[in-house]
């Protein structure tokens, strides 16, 4: 059963990839459409990685764009100045962001809840201001002339790797320790869980993937602007909205929310002003009536679908 479902999942994922390739070659999907699909993949990476920190470990971070920015700029600097191979740049972008995650995770040990939230927000803004003042990456003018190395296929593959890695992490003892820290830090400690270590670990892994997403992003758009909406707190809050609407602690929810909330604004381009009214209202309503998000910790998978067909009660596989 288990082998079979992963085989089927793999086949479906491959099919989607081939379908996109085919439609693109036929001219049915335009470059603009493929760009949106690639952005979907990048946002999936961002939201799922933020979910590890916020949803699974319960550390409220709203500075995810900071890690994203580090990956985006550092990798672009590497490819532009030193012409390093792209794969290497992705990994470097991820590792540098991961180191930043480590640096942010350490203070997280001493801060809780809302204080941590503000500190991470502040961290993100500091990163942005530093970039704004660094001429080597274009400073306030923005960073242009980045080679276009990111393809849809690469973004798609990275998104799949991210989802699989984080899902497996969450379903291992390491992930359970993170859940324990989220649920009750004192009880977790009394059971031998070093809560400090797991907070830092979650931040580091989450930041690594956010950095990778940044790399993909900068090498897709070929231009980075140090604005709040691209690498600042507006971006962080965008990611947070996707996470919350999809549901803290639900990977499936993150994936779906990332796709839906990337595509819908593109469809509703004429309503851009209303979007920023509807989102916050949605956010507040979800918190009032369904605070665990629309999918509320549930996971959707082929296995659970099969169980549903069998008439058995389907339930999340991590919780």
């Amino acid at each position: 059963m288990n082998k079979l479902t992963s085989l089927i999942s793999g086949a479906i994922l491959l099919f989607i990839y081939l379908l996109v390739q085919l439609l693109e070659r036929q001219g049915i999907l335009l470059a603009y459409h493929v760009q949106i699909l690639s952005l979907c993949c990048i946002n999936i990476i961002l939201v799922v990685s933020l979910n590890l920190i916020n949803g699974f470990t319960g550390q409220f971070s709203i500075g995810h764009a900071g890690f994203f920015a580090i990956g985006a700029y550092a990798s672009a600097y590497l490819t532009v100045t030193w012409q390093v191979p792209f794969i290497f740049a992705i990994i470097c972008g991820g590792i540098l962001a991961g180191i930043a995650g480590l640096a942010v995770g350490l203070p997280a040990l001493r801060l809780r809840g809302d204080y941590l939230a503000i500190a991470t927000l502040g961290f993100g803004e500091i990163i942005r201001v530093i970039i704004l003042n660094t001429d080597a990456v274009g400073g306030a003018r923005g960073f242009s002339g980045i080679p276009k190395y990111t393809t849809f296929g690469l973004a798609y593959l990275t998104a799949i790797i991210t989802v699989v890695v984080i899902r497996n992490f969450v379903n291992s003892d390491y992930g359970r320790a993170c859940l324990a820290v989220r649920e009750d830090e004192i009880a977790a400690e009394s059971l031998g869980v070093n809560s400090t270590y797991f907070k830092v670990l979650a931040f580091t892994i989450g930041a690594f993937f956010a950095g990778a997403a940044g790399t993909l992003f900068s090498h897709y758009l070929q231009y980075m602007a140090p604005t709040p909406s691209q690498i600042g707190f507006v971006k962080s809050i965008d990611i947070l909205i996707m996470l919350v609407l999809g549901g803290l602690g639900s990977i499936t929810g993150s994936v779906i929310a990332a796709i839906v909330l990337t595509v819908i604004p593109e469809l509703l381009r004429g309503f851009a002003e209303y979007r920023m009214i509807i989102y916050p209202i949605l956010l507040i309503l979800v918190m009032l009536y369904r605070p665990s998000g629309l999918l509320a910790g549930q996971e959707f998978s082929l296995a659970s679908l099969a169980q549903l067909f069998k008439g058995a009660k389907a339930h999340g596989n991590h919780s």
Binding site: F60, G113, L240, M276, I277, P280, I281, L283, I284, P291
Partner: peptide
Amino acid sequence: LRNSSRIAVLITAIGASLLLQSTAQ
């Protein structure tokens, strides 16, 4: 939300902030 988790309240506050901003705009 007075008896909800701190995170839920914080998210609501962020939502309220965005809402006031975009309404003002």
